[in-house]
């Protein structure tokens, strides 16, 4: 199948950051959501692939799974001083998401966009016209 042309796009939101991420399947839409989130944090600064982290999260439904997945990136940043630059693999099976991510020590870089939280506000994950769309609003 052809690769999607647009991985994600940012939408107007009064107070915060809103984006939609796309994929030919759910996994790809999740992966692109994470890329959108990381673009907000890193402001497009290139992150070196120095070390790896494994992410494993569960959720009650697609939306809470996406929430839990994206929250992991904020946790890595605050608690482990680790910023993700690349997602090597991502798999969703029986409501559990496993991913391998590559990145670097966050404090080597200077970021100023503080994403406070992932929110459920206007969040959805759905299949429309044979592609998957995930919409997220970040509290920044």
């Amino acid at each position: 199948m052809n690769k999607l042309k647009i991985k994600y796009k940012f939408l107007e939101h009064m107070a915060d950051v809103k984006f939609q991420a796309f994929g030919k399947n759910k996994e790809e839409a999740f992966l692109n959501s994470a890329l959108a989130l990381m673009e907000v944090v890193t402001e497009k600064v290139k992150i070196q692939d120095i070390s790896k982290r494994k992410i494993r999260v569960g959720g009650e439904d697609d939306v809470s799974l996406l929430y839990a997945f994206l929250e992991e990136f904020l946790y890595l940043l605050d608690a482990e001083d680790f910023v993700v630059g690349k997602i090597e693999s991502l798999e969703i099976k029986d409501g559990t998401l496993s991913a391998m991510v590559l990145g670097d020590t966050a404090s080597k870089y200077k970021f100023s966009n503080d994403v406070k939280a992932i929110t459920y506000n206007e969040m959805f994950v759905r299949e429309e016209n044979e592609k998957w769309v995930a919409q997220v609003v970040l509290d920044v």
Binding site: E60, S64, E71, L74, D78, Y120, N121, D139
Partner: peptide, 28 residues
Amino acid sequence: SRGLGHQVASDYIKEMEIKYGYPKFDRE
């Protein structure tokens, strides 16, 4: 309260959702 406060909010949003469900008019 930085990331600590943000995570407290997230944690309890999740816990309350599991225990009590969420209002149809707004998940938040």
